[in-house]
Amino acid sequence: MRVSRGIRLSLRVVALGYLFVLLAVPIGVILWRTFEPGLSEFLASISTPAARSALNLSLLIVAITVPVNVVFGVATALALVRGRFRGRGLLQAVVDLPFAVSPIVVGVALIMLWGAGGWFGALDQAGFQVIFGIPGMVLATIFVTLPFVVREVEPVLHEIGQEQEQAASTLGANGWQTFWRITLPAIRWGLTYGVVLTVARALGEFGAVIMVSSGFPGVSQTLTLLVHSRYIDDHNTYGAYAAATLLMGIALVVLLLMTVLDRKRSDR
């Protein structure tokens, strides 16, 4: 298609303007407001006990979510690609459910299931608090991040096929050895990419987590919850900006990692 120079230029201007207004301006404003009073003010704001606890809690949730998603994600992807069983189509659909369901619905569902009056409420009454405790927040995060590893590993498994695994078995490797030496190295880039997406989403999750968290500063606030409470409850706008910048900084590192990995993956 031939497009005149004028149209091409104006299309570029529109696209860039759109990105600028919708993405760059809001982020820029937060960065500007954060660093306006100086770096020391920012550092002070993100090292209060509540902020440190929020960072730690966010990282703790990530640290639990990632291994769980890796193990079950790879197993599910293997079942979806290699398995020949009834209900495979249903499983395919169920895996995508977290993409379709609003996180707030997930939160409500978890309360109904694990809360004091829920089906597994006995656990709560026995003293093991799921809802309004860390287990609930982990469960909510696992729910919303479940598809990432599965959906990144699945196409790679399709692509590599089964011949390498069969070759390994004819060479004397048992199932476990084949998985560790052949399958896992073959899917490693897809898996890493899925993990990075999981980390990003786990850090940023808000809707599902706020429903199941008691929200006490320094106890059960993640970084996203901290931003929210500082802004809404404490009217500490500056604190909210600073926490948001910290969150963005971590997300940026994750994003950079993702770009590097993606490039590495497409090289192969």
Binding site: E163, Q164, Q166, T170, G172, A173, I182
Partner: peptide, 16 residues
Amino acid sequence: PQRRGIGFVFQHYAAF
């Protein structure tokens, strides 16, 4: 397969 004492060569090599 791993206990049959065989060597197998695939059409598309199945290289690791």
